[in-house]
Write a protein that binds this DNA or RNA. Structure first.
Lengths: 123, 123
DNA sequence: ATAATATTCAACCGCATGGTTGAGCATTCA
DNA sequence: TGAATGCTCAACCATGCGGTTGAATATTAT
């Protein structure tokens, strides 16, 4: 529950990424910054829906907005992705090309547990 | 909306990661596989709540369960993280050590847009 | 001044989520 | 056989989410 301090931030980042529309918006913003109307155009949902998505991205720190007159110019802000990446780095060793070292490791423990040989290792 | 085919899978993966309890569970499973009771013990919520979290992780492919008698032995399954990582790879160039090349790139476009110089570039 | 444009606010809907409690079902222990 | 254990199912609750429509606000254009 307590975890790493920046846990709430990771919550916002990962859950912002958990929606396909928002991921598509981010991808489009890597091509060029855009106003909200421009961002919304390709999507089959209302402008309001997109406006909400943008707020979610903004709260996650993944989007920056600069208001210029009546237009809001948006650009991607990649730094939070670095944070998500840092979280995943802890697990990267486990799927890396080096033949899934963890999978092997865990599998051993797993099999041992099933045989009841390793109960002392459990808390 | 259509996106990449495996979009729904990414949805499940990212939203599974968007909860601190589930991230803590994953982390604990990197230390050792465990039964559901063992997993639940450290958390201040009910066993049922943990059981639900485990189902979410399982549906995202991040956890594998083997039922041995009345105990369910769980281990982490890192492969989906690789997928999430692949998605992020597209953005990695943007925050990499090369001093945020995208930030600079986007910033240029952004400033241009604000001055109204680049309207032709917008779709 | 008026109209059009760009965006948000507010209220609502249906559904998912994270949590609870209590019952139910296998499996193991005595 | 009967009791304890490990886990899920079912029902419920409060909250949040992604979507809508309609009104409001602010800026720009006529």
């Amino acid at each position: 529950m307590v975890e790493h301090s920046n846990s709430a931030e990771l919550d916002r980042i990962f859950s912002a990424l958990a929606d396909p529309t928002r991921r598509a918006i981010l991808r489009s913003l890597t091509r060029r910054p855009a106003t909200i109307n421009e961002i919304a155009k390709p999507f089959p949902v209302s402008l309001n829906a997109i406006s909400k998505h943008l707020m979610v991205l903004e709260r996650a720190g993944l989007l920056r907005r600069e208001i210029k007159g009546r237009q809001h110019h948006c650009r991607i802000e990649p730094r939070p992705l670095r944070q998500a990446d840092a979280w995943m780095a802890h697990y990267r060793q486990f799927w890396d090309e080096r033949l899934d070292a963890l999978a092997v490791y865990v599998d051993k423990k797993f099999k041992a547990a099933k045989k009841g040989k390793a109960h002392g290792n459990f808390r």
